[in-house]
Amino acid sequence: MSIVRTESLTKVYGDVGQPIPAVHDVDLTVDEGEFVAIMGPSGSGKSTLLYLLGGLDKPTSGKVWLRDSDIDALDDDALSRLRRNQVGFVFQFFNLIPVLTAQENVAIPLILDGMPRARALKQADEALARVGLADRATHRPTELSGGQQQRVALARALVTKPSVILADEPTGNLDSRSSDDVVQMLRRAVDDWKQTLVLVTHDSRVAAFADRIVFLKDGKIVDDNRLKGKGNADQIREQLSKMVLS
């Protein structure tokens, strides 16, 4: 079943005289439980595509469906509710509200939705435990490392059990080690917690965690690459040994 679907999605920036298409005629379908990575050189429109999927930006033409709702037909309030309930965002920067604790940051979409605070905080604690940060609940973002902040952001995206999680370069600002932690967590979100995930990255090693990699160039999809399972360990071990011994 498709969670996200676009049809001739196009977004043009700039003046009328000199339009710069950021996303051009994109048809993309993401199925439930899929982990899709979007790759492409900078300026290829991958972030713009992600924002269009999440209702953060309005398309110039074309359509986006999230589950059954046509995003374009929603007014600002409905769109806000959709982002609150149906979409989980993880960004590269400015991911957390500095004056809120980790727990409150995670709880904020629930609280904005009017859930009683105590219950929201309890659910936030559970989400934090999932990303391994149960002991950091009362810390402020400035007291957390970059990787931990990003895991809090992931917990925030998970807490509402959204239809889709959209992650924009979530590891772009992290070192290899923290990056690995975060992307492992994303993978678990799909495998263990049955989330659907669309991730924009320029890092091949992050993209390799995905089930499917979509390549964008000049706002168009140039390759849609479904990856097959895990490797044969013995075979790989053999190959690698040769490499070592050569």
Partner: peptide, 15 residues
């Protein structure tokens, strides 16, 4: 070629 490399990378990543 990229497809192949990604397939390999995916396999290694899974391991």
């Amino acid at each position: 070629q990229r497809r192949e490399l990604f397939q390999q990378l995916h396999e290694v990543t899974e391991l």
